[in-house]
Design a protein around this nucleic acid. Structure first.
Lengths: 169, 169
DNA sequence: CTTGGAAAGTCAACAAGGCTGACTTAAAAT
DNA sequence: ATTTTAAGTCAGCCTTGTTGACTTTCCAAG
């Protein structure tokens, strides 16, 4: 923690590493995450679903045909937690679970037309805010935003994040 | 939604506003927020406290003497939710609640030495990750990170965020 | 001085969504 | 044939959010 205050002897400006700046970054994450989830949350109320359902819909849409095990690793929750959410989505006809071809133990998950519809509704709401923020901040700010977020992830999370990259979606 | 794909006629590069880029931003927020909370969460386990306790400690530390009403507005939860958390922190001697001078209905909240100690422990853990991420990404990336986060906030949240700015803390 | 309303706190009940632990079934791998 | 893996289920618990109803305290306006 030497020179964390940035007032030391390094000529290079490290003022962006002061405790005050870091604290503000923490607070920015807190307030921004609330905005980030606010719009989908409002929509989900009408469906008696929660954030957990949204996450499942998002990542199944993102990687159609993914297995339950893979989804568990991405979401970082227990099998029981995910199962509760998945069961209701399957019962309601938003998600389809099909037995694996090669390995019949696996279940491959995909969205039904109704599932795609809700996912799009949620995604549109969340993306609208994101787009406005991106547009307001500009491309260079967005690049920085993405760099810092990626650096904040745990290595495992970053691996999952990068595996999602550039998929045909 | 016109030209959201960025393949249209605008000569200006709007590739950072493609649906794919926005989706990646959403996923980056999700994975990064998990990293963001991971370290404090581990510490809180030892104290039988949760994230809600951490948030209360953080903002009381940030604005010593703040009132319950102000804290409610910042945290965006109900009085009952906050009260449960606050009560346990007061009972355990981490937070002090004192009757207001001018308005004796108000309670002014501040951290006790023990409260300061835990807040520092949590803050140090969270700040360490933040500092590493900032350092890895560099000052310009950090500026962009902050710009985008601020643009994502709801106006009310942004107001609270900016009121916290540059306090003597 | 009385009264209306704001601030704070409390009690009860409930829901979402995490968790652990124990257990079953089916199929793949050894 | 046995072990391991993938999936699913049941039961129970915790945290943290919610509503609604209610009390106490106290400022401020009529």
């Amino acid at each position: 923690m030497a020179d964390a205050g940035g007032t030391g002897t390094t000529g290079d400006s490290l003022l962006f590493l002061t405790d005050e700046q870091l604290r503000k970054g923490i607070e920015a994450m807190f307030f921004a995450y609330r905005g980030f989830t606010a719009d989908p949350d409002r929509i989900l109320e009408d469906y008696a679903y929660g954030r957990a359902h949204h996450r499942a819909l998002h990542f199944i849409n993102r990687s159609p045909g993914t297995t339950v095990t893979n989804l568990l690793a991405i979401l970082g929750v227990t099998k029981q937690s995910l199962n509760r959410v998945l069961r209701s989505l399957i019962e309601d006809g938003l998600v389809e679970s099909s037995v694996g071809r090669n390995d019949k133990r696996e279940r491959h998950l995909s969205l039904t037309p109704r599932g795609l519809e809700l996912e799009k509704k949620l995604s549109d709401a969340q993306t609208a805010r994101m787009r406005a923020a991106y547009r307001a901040a500009g491309p260079e700010a967005v690049a920085g935003f993405r760099q810092v977020l990626e650096a904040m992830m745990d290595p495992d999370q970053r691996r999952h994040f990068n595996l999602l990259k550039d998929q045909p979606g």
